[in-house]
């Protein structure tokens, strides 16, 4: 190959290096823009919130609905939570035996129930998946303090809104 060919080959080499560099940087910047690594702990928060609420509402496993009603407060305030701490949560406690529901206590943003239903339906898409609220649904057997003590179940449902 003569000298002119060699310099042309050098120019092509530089072009190839620049092209590889440009492609690499483009991929890197695009992935940086769209790469959003979020660690979701909302389900864990919902579980902890449910347990803390049950410990508050039914200490030592004894549920006294009368004292709860007499306080005149919502469950969050009854359990000593500020509005700023509880604004992300929705809580539903259904108290009942095997046959019927005795009472239902609700506090928080009820709109989260509707949001949770959407995420549980076919309308959920990948683009909104990261905003899915945290959820916990559990049953806690307790003793209901009435004229006598009665075995009942507390069905606790907690929904945690995404932090935006």
């Amino acid at each position: 190959m003569n000298n002119k060919g060699q310099s042309g080959s050098g120019i092509i080499t530089i072009y190839r290096v620049l092209a590889v560099s440009a492609i690499s940087f483009t991929i890197f910047f695009l992935s940086s823009m769209f790469y959003d690594y979020e660690i979701s702990v909302k389900d864990s928060e919902a579980l902890i919130f449910a347990r803390q609420t049950v410990d508050c509402v039914a200490p030592n496993g004894i549920l006294d609905l009368d004292s709860l009603r007499e306080s005149g407060e919502g469950i969050f305030a009854f359990c000593g939570l500020d509005e700023s701490e509880s604004e992300r949560f929705f809580l539903s406690i259904s108290v009942g035996g095997s046959a019927e529901e005795i009472d239902r206590l609700v506090d928080g943003d009820e709109g989260l129930e509707w949001v949770q239903k959407i995420y549980g339906s076919e309308f959920k898409t990948e683009s909104v998946k990261k905003y899915e609220p945290g959820y916990y649904n559990g049953v806690f057997p307790v003793l209901l303090k009435d004229d006598s003590y009665k075995d009942v179940e507390m069905r606790v449902e907690v929904i945690v809104k995404d932090e935006i």
Binding site: G80, L81, E85, R88, E163
Partner: peptide, 8 residues
């Protein structure tokens, strides 16, 4: 931004 906690 931090991360929120709840505690009485």
């Amino acid at each position: 931004k931090g991360y929120s906690y709840f505690s009485k």
